[in-house]
Design a protein around this nucleic acid. Structure first.
Lengths: 116, 116
DNA sequence: CTTCAACGTACCCGATTGGTAACTATATTA
DNA sequence: TAATATAGTTACCAATCGGGTACGTTGAAG
């Protein structure tokens, strides 16, 4: 019996805004402008560096990319690894939790294709 | 192999903004503040009147409800039927297309519950 | 001594969203 | 005559979101 009602809406979730409701929590987590694109990229290509993502997501800007990545990291969906080199090298990859998002991103994509 | 890349992003979709990408199309359609709540309600309870939804979705406002319903109707996810009576009576219910959203709302809700 | 690479941050701006409050229409009821 | 119920609409406002530009850091290369 999924597809449930949204009772008790606002009730402060620690790191997040309001939304106590499961569906809205998920939407909030993947809802950013470039987030699904980023997640798909990492799901397909494994670990990627900042510059690589910048190229593949054009016309995203550095600022937007960093911002979205930060939020995804805060939600433990991706892992950021910074190597102490110069010039800097930073690699991003999905966490286990991030990989579980397939379960929601796949249907999202499927439905979108049928919407025509 | 779902979980695909977002190539060719902006390319004017008729009634919608840009987003040619399936995943983002879906997100745009269900992304409004109260939309998932409304869709769940209709999925559970069948046809509902404006006032009934207003009560069950408190603290939604009349303006927001109307607005979200209008958008859902424009996307052919719900059907609006206005009876020519006084006082007015308007009933909303899911369309077939609206019902197919289960396929995406269920996983969304499931994942949200596990996110803790 | 200047420039470049790679990855950010800081500051500012306009557009979109969500929300509040007041107003409309009309037949029925008190 | 005035209030009630129902389903809106309208004007206005504040917060958030996405985006643009400029600047910072550090060592190596020219």
């Amino acid at each position: 019996m999924t597809f449930e009602t949204n009772e008790g809406n606002d009730a402060t979730v620690p790191g997040h805004k309001k939304h106590n409701n499961p569906t809205e929590v998920t939407l909030e987590v993947i809802g950013g402008k470039w987030k699904t694109a980023i997640l798909c990229l990492l799901a397909e290509q494994g670990a990627l560096r900042n510059g690589e993502m910048l190229r593949q997501l054009t016309p995203i800007t550095q600022k937007m990319l960093t911002q979205q990545l930060k939020e995804l990291e805060a939600d433990a969906l991706i892992l950021r690894t910074a190597y102490l080199e110069v010039p800097p090298k930073v690699v991003y990859e999905l966490t286990d939790r991030g990989r579980t998002l397939r379960m929601v991103l796949d249907p999202l994509c499927e439905w979108g294709k049928r919407f025509v």
